[in-house]
Design a protein around this nucleic acid. Structure first.
Lengths: 225, 225
DNA sequence: TTTATTTAGTGGTCTGACCATTGGTATAGC
DNA sequence: GCTATACCAATGGTCAGACCACTAAATAAA
């Protein structure tokens, strides 16, 4: 009764063994694992069990299965967790307020980290997206992809993949919303200017100003709720 | 171009269908899903596919499979998933650095939101955890749970469940690390004082000071990497 | 009513077969 | 000798059917 908490599925055991194998051999992303056949022979279980274990691990991003080729070690990623989180969020979209506030923190943090990391290439890319955004606005089209791309590039500019993943979740959610009730031409034009201000401030490595500009940019969202 | 990245495994499709089914029927934790047999008939695929899909979803915590009973909708707990995914992170220095920096942003954001939300009950609770933490330190024990509880309560104090969920991921990870190489008695005692300073500043609704104190508290982590 | 037993249904594992995709190799053509 | 093509062996994807193990609920026994 003490140890009863351990449910012993064979596939569970197998996946643990494979994880241990990865650690033991100190394998990195992209390294090739033994084939299904080899795992079957080595672990002495049926193909069913091995496959279920691998499929589960693939869903978690621990391994990556390539048809006709083999099984490879996956990269460290929050993605599977976030997928699960977003799946839950769809059940009640009343979390809007919370998401808006969370986004604010993340965007402001991104500004700070982007300045710390500082890679001009990303800033140029942000400018480019903003240019395309302005172009689309001029043609009277909703610049949804460009807007999203601008912010995503900002998160990339942090040089922090974990942060990018975390933030990507939030951004995706906002994209879906904005697809429904998109902004007017005037507000879009204002967004372009605000983007420019943020980028400029980051370029000048002025953390306080960059944050201020980002606050201004996000302010309308707070009231939108 | 866009769709080429989408590898269409049958089991992947099936898991999507099942997730859609859960959303569609607005099922909650503990609700019973159709049996394997029913899913096989309804989706027109082999048992292998259904089982692999379910096994993957179980690993993600979306469903819970009970032998001899049936399949149930899982709860929103992310811990088990984190357990599965993060086993390799400690090896990855880059990932560690990213996590530390991400945590910093989240904690500082929490301070800000906690002051905005301001509920004394949470502050009292934080004091209580800190008191217990001090107690444990005095007895020479590592105050791991108490430390985590303090920070979790801070996240709760934001009144933002989404933020709590997101942050919980990061915090839990740090807990596991600290379980291995826990801090010395002196540094633990210092942590208690720092916690107190943070709480006091929040109580005084002094955002700047609260952030500053939190920065001080987290600073050692940055160098730890 | 309470307890023990049976039973039908469910998930767990195994086997063996065949298909689809991939990467490398052998071959044909230049 | 080099390149392009065809081929092949290995690997993962899917399927079908069988049998085992477990659970909960119906049934029988106390």
């Amino acid at each position: 009764m003490l140890n009863s908490s351990e449910k012993v599925n064979l596939s569970h055991i197998v996946s643990e063994r494979i994880k241990a194998y990865i650690l033991e051999k100190d394998m990195r992303e992209g390294d090739k694992l033994p084939s299904e056949k080899q795992l079957i022979d080595a672990l002495g279980v049926s193909r069913t069990v091995v496959r279920e274990a691998l499929k589960s691990m693939e869903m978690l991003g621990i391994v990556k299965i390539k048809t006709g080729d083999g099984i490879y070690v996956g990269g460290p990623s929050l993605k599977p967790i976030l997928e699960q989180v977003s799946f839950r969020w769809q059940q009640d979209e009343r979390k809007m307020t919370e998401l808006v506030k969370t986004r604010r923190i993340l965007e402001l943090g991104a500004v700070e980290m982007a300045i710390e990391h500082y890679d001009v290439a990303f800033l140029d890319q942000m400018d480019e997206w903003n240019r395309r955004m302005a172009e689309k606005v001029d043609r009277g089209l909703p610049p949804i992809e460009e807007d999203l791309a601008f912010h995503e590039t900002l998160f990339r500019a942090t040089g922090n993949e974990t942060y990018l993943e975390l933030s990507g979740l939030i951004s995706d959610f906002f994209l879906k919303i904005r697809t429904l009730h998109f902004d007017s031409v005037e507000s879009s034009r204002k967004s372009v200017d605000e983007h420019q201000n943020v980028t400029d401030a980051i370029r000048a490595k002025d953390v306080a100003r960059a944050k201020r500009e980002m606050e201004i940019h996000l302010a309308p969202l707070q009231k939108f709720i």
